[in-house]
Amino acid sequence: MLRLRPLTLHRPTSLAEAIALKSEYGTDATYFAGGTDLLPNLKLLQVDAQVLIALADVAELRGIEAVDDDGGSTLHLGAATRLSTLAADPVVRSLVPSLADAAGRVASPQVRNMATLGGNLCLDTRCRYINQSQLFRDALGGCLKSHGKECHVVPGGQGCVAALSTDTAPLLIALGAELDLLGPDGPRSVPLGRFYSTDGLAHTDLRPGEIVVRVRVPVPAASTHVRNRKWAVRKSIDFPLVAVAVRLDLDPAAPVLTGGRIVVGVLGPRPRQLPLDRFAGASIDEALALQLGDLAFDRSRPLPNVPYDADYRRERLRVEVRRAVRDIAASLEG
């Protein structure tokens, strides 16, 4: 069986303690929450960590709370909230059902019982050339994300284009979520929409030692309609091969579009955001479904990074966007 290599584990009970440990050990150390992404990567020797800093005992990372603020309410989700909790939580289900739905589609029941929301947002990027055994990567001669000098996805490419394969990030970006971070230099907040970069080797805005503490999700207004769509070959276990969130903001007085956005995941390291301002005034109908599907198709170019045909993923993205719009249209009629 694949074994982990020997390592040292710390179990801090506060964020301050965790951050101090990380500062002490530097790049030898890695934060460790649910472990469902990190441990396979460690076992496959894709990443190395001599020191794990477990976040399981840090109470500050827990909790689900709806906070009323100016003009609406916001869900405050502790980063260590497990995905199964998120999927089942009555507050989440009533205020942001699309988030409960997205969390409930991640991987498998067991993984959802272990994995955390923060971990899902900080998932390492994935690629058919890196999420492999050591023997495979040796045989390949490595790639930009391992020990090689060549990108096998984009021949001649200079930057790593491994894909962010999270199920929740596109939706949370569409919802306008913000992250509260804490690091050695103190706290800061960053909109999730600006959290990711295009560098598959360092695809988040996290600075050394920083931890995602909380995810703040504005509860959408009644006139805002959000749908999350996932496509994978299997109905369980799989990472998404297409992940897209569609947010339509409607005029509260009439079912016409005032704005919104489509957020497409599993392209490269950063989800793509497609604002819908230019469709303002459109009715929510089949014509819009087709138009928005085409928009997503035209503006997204899935790569042969994750293990499925890229051209089909692009076709499929178009259909998933259409279906999200149709679903919203149907809900308006109902």
């Binding site: 020997p6 020797l45 050591q134 001669g141 020990h147």
Partner: peptide, 15 residues
């Protein structure tokens, strides 16, 4: 195995 990636074998568990 793993040398190209600069991996040093670790087999001894101290913790």
């Amino acid at each position: 195995l793993g040398a190209a990636a600069g991996q040093q074998a670790r087999s001894e568990a101290r913790d």
